[in-house]
Simulated assay, not measured.
Amino acid sequence: MADVAALAGVSHQTVSRVLNEHPSVREATRERVQAAIDELGYRRNSAARALVTSRSATLGVVTTGSALFGPTSTLIAVEEAARDRSYFVSVATLRSYDTASMHQALEHFMAQGVDGIVVIAPHAAVASAVESFRAPVPVVVVAALEGATTSDGPASSTMSVAVDQRAGARLATEHLLDLGHANVVHVAGPQDWFDARERWAGWREALVARGIRPARPRECSWSAGDGYAAGRDLAEAVGSGEGPTAVFAGNDQLALGVLRALWERGLRVPDDVSVVGFDDVAGSAYFVPPLTTVRQPFAELGARSVAMVLSSLEGEPVAVQRIEPELVVRSSTAPPPP
């Protein structure tokens, strides 16, 4: 910085202000300093900065290592949001969901001196392991839970943010009910995942609010294969005249499997059966037919999780946050057959 200041003919403090985008610097001065930075190839010394500020400008991110759309999209969104705030990201991937593995990942971040941690915890076991670890830095859990607790009570350093999965499921189910469907079945994801639990609950709430008694959902994994198996059973029931007129699938991959099974049986979507998914994965607009689904705002989820960590670092109170999803209506839904 001293070399930059000397070349630009300004003070060390002015260079610092330019680097930190301080508004008090005149534009001509800013351009002169930037030209000196470019000429000298100056880069911030993160290690030196950490010594001065007692912060590493690094966030730890724990992810489950899943290739599923939701966790992967969340990880990308968190990394982009951190970079926008001039933070580095260190990622730890869990291969198993036990407490020992989670604690090892968190201790790894403590050794790195991270300023805070974001845990992408869609699985119940992951969140439980986080709750048992008393981290000395802010921890944000990205999961659809009401608040992180331990056996000793609330964990003050643990906060949560999530897309409102239950609200999204209500949007999907109410859309089908508003079209006139009275028999809406749910092909559910695995119930050890928070998202699957909340989507199940939202579907049930929407039916009960309309005076409809829900049948028990078909519980599956998140795979298209499981959706296909469930769809074959549903297609048999529809073919016999006893099946549903609408299906709410726990994610778009399950919906894809259901669509294939219905097609093989000769049932038309949405003429015979309407189908709604969840996630709005890349390509869902090109399913046959294009899939009505619930879109999750992952960019906002990432931005809020990073903002919560940084606000907590500044001593600001941070509440549990929920982000509203959006229903995307396409061609896979229509009124039921007469």
Results as ranks from 00 to 15, higher is better:
residue 109 F to G: 08
residue 120 I to E: 06
residue 122 P to S: 02
residue 100 A to M: 08
residue 96 S to W: 00
residue 110 M to T: 02
residue 91 V to N: 06
residue 117 I to K: 02
residue 78 V to D: 06
residue 118 V to S: 00
residue 90 S to V: 14
residue 108 H to P: 00
residue 115 D to P: 08
residue 130 V to P: 06
residue 130 V to M: 03
residue 104 Q to Y: 06
residue 94 L to M: 13
residue 107 E to G: 01
residue 85 R to I: 05
residue 108 H to Q: 11
residue 92 A to Y: 08
residue 97 Y to A: 08
residue 81 A to G: 05
residue 121 A to Y: 04
residue 121 A to F: 03
residue 128 S to D: 11
residue 117 I to W: 00
residue 104 Q to K: 12
residue 100 A to E: 15
residue 90 S to Y: 07
residue 118 V to I: 13
residue 130 V to D: 04
residue 92 A to H: 10
residue 112 Q to D: 09
residue 126 V to T: 15
residue 105 A to V: 09
residue 110 M to R: 13
residue 122 P to Q: 11
residue 100 A to Q: 15
residue 120 I to L: 07
residue 87 Y to V: 04
residue 89 V to R: 00
residue 109 F to V: 07
residue 114 V to R: 01
residue 121 A to C: 04
residue 111 A to Q: 14
residue 87 Y to E: 08
residue 123 H to A: 03
residue 111 A to V: 12
residue 109 F to T: 04
residue 98 D to W: 07
residue 102 M to S: 06
residue 100 A to R: 15
residue 120 I to G: 06
residue 79 E to G: 03
residue 87 Y to Q: 12
residue 102 M to E: 06
residue 102 M to L: 15
residue 106 L to A: 10
residue 110 M to C: 00
residue 115 D to Q: 07
residue 94 L to D: 12
residue 117 I to Y: 00
residue 118 V to K: 00
residue 104 Q to A: 15
residue 115 D to W: 03
residue 88 F to Y: 11
residue 111 A to M: 09
residue 111 A to H: 11
residue 84 D to M: 11
residue 113 G to N: 05
residue 80 E to L: 11
residue 119 V to R: 01
residue 104 Q to H: 12
residue 110 M to L: 13
residue 113 G to Q: 06
residue 121 A to N: 03
residue 121 A to Q: 04
residue 128 S to T: 12
residue 124 A to Y: 04
residue 86 S to Y: 09
residue 107 E to N: 12
residue 112 Q to N: 08
residue 103 H to W: 11
residue 127 A to Y: 00
residue 120 I to K: 00
residue 82 A to L: 10
residue 114 V to C: 01
residue 99 T to A: 15
residue 84 D to E: 15
residue 80 E to A: 14
residue 106 L to E: 09
residue 130 V to I: 06
residue 115 D to Y: 10
residue 88 F to D: 14
residue 84 D to A: 15
residue 120 I to N: 06
